[in-house]
Write a protein that binds this DNA or RNA. Sequence first.
RNA 1: GGUCCUAUCGACUAAUGGUUAGGUCACCACCCUUUCACGGUGGUAAUAGGGGUUCGAAUCCCCUUAGGAUCACCA
Length: 480
Amino acid sequence: MNIRVRFAPSPTGFLHVGGLRTALYNYLFAKHNGGKFILRIEDTDRTRFVENAQENLIKSLRWAGIEFDESPEIGGDFGPYIQSERFHLYKKYGTELIENGSAYYAFDTAEELDAMRERQQKAGIAPKYDRSVMRNEFTLGKDETQKLINDGTAYCIRLKVPHNDEITFTDLIRGYVSVIGRDVDDQILLKSDGFPTYHLANVIDDHLMGITHIIRGEEWIPSTPKHILLYKAFGWECPLFAHLPLLLNRDKTKLSKRQGSVAVEDFVAKGYFKEAFVNFIALLGWNPSADREIFDFQELINTFKLEKVNKSGAVFDTQKLDWMNGQYLKKLPISYMASILKPELSNFNYGDVSDDYLGKVIDLFKERITFLKDVLTFGNYMFEKPKEFEADYKEKHWKEGTATMMQPLIDEFRNINDWSHNLLHDATKQFVDANKLKLKDVIHPLRLMITGKSVGAGMFETMAVLGKKECIERFDEFMG
RNA sequence: GGUCCUAUCGACUAAUGGUUAGGUCACCACCCUUUCACGGUGGUAAUAGGGGUUCGAAUCCCCUUAGGAUCACCA
């Protein structure tokens, strides 16, 4: 089978993390099976036009390493890949459904529909288009319908759902799903502005583009019967469906903006590595059954199987993502990290920083940070003299007599020319032994003077990187 | 409310009829140690409840409960 799958987002202006996961699973499925991955922009709602939406979408996808075989940008044999550019296609299919009795004309206004729903709500029944009482082909009759159309009355085309038919499909993830026709609404197919709704356009385009598998979010399950009815009405072969579990907020509701960031670009801005982010997202709802968490992109492609996708929703909790980001960070080459940090430097007033020095600082911090930019923030004292000294830390480690105790050691440091961490350590060790002290008795005062902070990398390593001149200056400044 | 989907540690998940129910994050303790980390060792922690089927059920079936999704001329 020649597998073809698509990612069909509406251009909302940014890529939702749920959208990224859907795109990713489609991509992994396609690549795992040697199939094609297609991008189609679903912009049939012209009231929701957003400037640059498509560009932003593709930018985020590209950041994640997801590329398409066919798309609006690169084209393909099944274009155009933007639904608004396919506008001319849809109307004839709408008419075709009218002619074969699968759909009908309706003339109800928004107010009439609202009134209907209100009546139904009051009566305690599910809101659903009642074609036996509303203004449509059935209640008006053929002649009146034709007359209204000829007069230019606004109309839409609705799907005629057979009330007594059972509509079923076998979901690749969930198995057998079934619903009875009377519970399915007579969905509008063609709007009065002449544009198709999602349901019509989506089915037509998936068919025309030869899509074999539809992999999408669970929120689409309720409308899948409508789509199946459409495939049947057209006499088209139905693609296979796979409905992905939802991504959830902490309170288990569908992941939304209200409870935190959901735009991929926000996570890019926070400094997550794409490898970590993709790895993390991939494992939210799918697992290759290995006792392992870290997978590179190729491994994801190699092991991805739709059958192993979970059925239940997954809470989007970034705690593990942070850990994963740190894991990836540790393995990155220093030179690569330096090249990322270099342009960031201009946002801080750190003056000139050589590549060599930056690399040494990164090496000092890479074991203990989550984001690369932490080097510049937590590690600020590697680039400028400490402006503040943690009060608690100072109180604890700088007492009466500490200055007197430290002064001889500092003077000894002045005589050290080979400013290496080994020598600094040895000199300090000799000093504490001679004075019946412990190493940590002097290390904390040193740390306070040098960094102003209670946490940081190894003291002598830190001093070695800073250099003799800088360290002595800091000592002298602190001692006054 | 109708319909549909779902249910293993706090979170992500493994175990597709036989395990002391495993791993990872987080948390706790200890080791390492120079603070914080990293690393190492160990620990707390789960099959929603009830019925079946079976020699045997987290796993299959039913009911209950709980959560969620959806019910637009949005996608």
